[in-house]
Design a binder for these strands. Structure first.
Lengths: 363, 363
DNA sequence: ATGTATTGTGAATCCGGTC
DNA sequence: CGACCGGATTCACAATACA
């Protein structure tokens, strides 16, 4: 069923000017997700040099300058209030920040009624060191994921995250590299934006908490990482950005971005919206051969796959779920994750075979 | 020089009662470190309790989320204010919390003038999974490390942390297991305290930001992890705890704890307390002879060591650092690694001579 | 071409004592 | 308060240069 999207929304556009003003033009309850990367209010001292004497190119842009906590708080309350208004009742908010600002942002969004679902730690695999040896290496940033309120509904693609994380629940700490290399936008050798976020971060945010066709708004659009990843993942996007240089760079960048095709998107959500698969279909299709030995993680029980998709353990037989439940004496059992089989010398849950099956069936 | 410790301080004692009241008995500016693990029992649905444990009558009072935040904020401001008062000007505060309370705590301590030095992520290696599959696995908690203010001094054992981390700077994300096994205090098979922190966490906190003999106060002492680790590391401790059960368990536990001996403690700080060495002392001691030719790695400049420990290059003279800085036109220069000299036909940084000097001085 | 050494750089609240 | 100066201080990658 196609999503019903208001025709009034400026989809695929970057609104010029202050983000609070820009958001005022958006109808209430019309946005599925707001992702915001507001200024961090760094308040740096003098220059900083590396031990080898080279100079550190710091964030000294005027947009990161605030005179006091009060001014920063007022600014934060303003844009969060508009964000809350334009979000659908089951919409969600993401904010990223560092210790300089995230505690203020977090407290204010709680005051406004947002409900924190998780705080996520982006653990940088390659952070800038602490050159002077005066503190711990500042090696992470924090993201807050919030619903509209304590009782509000929200969307979480549990299966997609679990698949992405090699069949383990996705944790609240994400290890991702910072944005550099070919991905980092440069103009004449210098970076276009001082704090461009990695696409992998947005990829995970959008894949976990939006559906295909959802509308994502980014009030601090910068060079458009949110827009680029949204387009790739088949989500609609709206940006707000005051700086013309950033707007132009973002439009050029998103123009070049190609959406993933339908099948890839469907695959990523496999398990969640995919039809139920009978274990027997895998056997039938040759993905698991009859006679295969399957076992639980601790190898307490080793059962045999039979041609009809049932399992046999000594005198007992049953479905993958039923036999797992019986053997453990448990009230229930997810056979897909309980039973494992050997693939190239490695024990994998039979759910891995289901993923292969789904991939093949898509075509 | 031995630390001057006020004789009035209740060292090695657990103060009974409310922590704000208890802290009032502590003189101002007398504590080196406050470590706090405050409660965050914003009851989510069902009964509502104040942080002090008293029950909120939902019939007579109209309670909503705003009210419960307000109560928690007031409570937080109260104990943080007392903590700030009793801390020395160069003292430090640590607070641990989860997303339920840490954003409120962080904003309030900033409002009170505390200066955040780092936020630390305790990444749990074995967190409780999210059983319902509705969110990301909540796999971390957050610690805030703060000085008394923006310009305030503080203590950081950089070398000890680097040693602990296999000669790499310690990062702001710490991977540590949760507290269970033999370390977890139990009474008749059930855990004594619901949120006992692992000793490894306190070990790192105390080792990084206190010196031997420092006084550590924990306003929410619980079963005394802070006290146990403080005793082990040769730090003094004071606790506050309302619950008699916890107080008794903590006293029994700390009683059994054995302090590390002097040599172990000293070793762990090796390198940190090493005295600064003037280049002149090496010349004076004969480790570098006056007239020695020193040069940079690429042999662009060759300077001469003079009898007073200064260097001469053509018409220019200066310290090892200053001359290196001038010649390169760099903002700063570490002369120890910039300048080299010939030892047995091999170019070595003059820092090698410093090492020899230090070895000789040790004895 | 392929491998090795060197150089560059990233949201950073980044020195301390003396005069 | 500022100026001055001695001394201490970096990790993971990517890009470039060179063998």
């Amino acid at each position: 069923m196609p999503k019903q999207v208001s025709l009034e929304l400026p989809l695929g556009q970057i609104l010029d000017g202050d983000c609070v003003e820009a958001m005022r033009s958006i109808p209430s309850g019309s946005i599925d997700l707001v992702f915001a990367d507001p200024p961090y209010n760094l308040q740096l001292g003098g220059d900083l040099n590396r031990p080898d004497g080279s100079h550190v190119d710091a964030v000294t842009d005027h947009w990161d300058q605030f005179d006091s906590f009060k001014i920063y708080d007022d600014f934060t309350r303003d844009w969060l209030t508009e964000a809350k208004r334009i979000l659908k009742p089951d919409g969600a908010l993401w904010v990223i920040g560092s210790y300089h600002n995230i505690y203020r942002v977090g407290a204010i969004l709680q005051d406004l009624g947002f409900w924190i679902l998780n705080d996520i730690v982006w653990r940088k695999s390659n952070p800038m060191p602490n050159f002077r040896g005066t503190r711990f290496t500042n090696a992470h940033e924090t993201l807050l994921w919030c619903s509209q309120g304590e009782k509000a509904k929200y969307h979480f693609n549990y299966r997609a995250m679990k698949t992405l994380n090699d069949e383990l629940q996705m944790r609240s700490d994400w290890v991702l590299p910072i944005c550099n290399g070919a991905e980092r936008l440069k103009e004449g050798g210098t970076k276009v934006h001082p704090t461009q976020k990695p696409e992998s971060l947005l990829y995970r945010v959008l894949l976990s908490t939006t559906e295909k066709g959802d509308v994502v708004l980014d009030p601090f659009f910068g060079t458009g990482t949110t827009g680029a990843v949204a387009k790739r993942l088949g989500r609609e996007w709206i940006g707000c950005e005051r700086e013309g240089v950033y707007r132009n760079a973002a439009l050029k960048r998103i123009e070049k971005e190609l959406p993933l095709d339908e099948s890839a998107l469907t695959t990523m959500q496999a398990g969640r919206s995919a039809p139920k698969v009978a274990f027997g279909a895998l056997v039938e299709g040759g993905f698991i051969k009859p006679g295969t030995q399957v076992f639980d993680k601790k190898r307490r029980w080793m059962a045999t796959v039979r041609a009809d998709g049932s399992l046999a353990y000594e005198k007992q037989t049953g479905s993958i779920h039923g036999l797992g439940k019986e053997l453990q004496g448990a009230p229930s059992c997810n056979g897909w994750t309980f039973w494992h089989y050997e693939v190239e010398g490695e024990a994998k849950p039979i759910d891995a075979a289901r993923q292969l099956y789904l991939l093949a069936v898509e075509d």
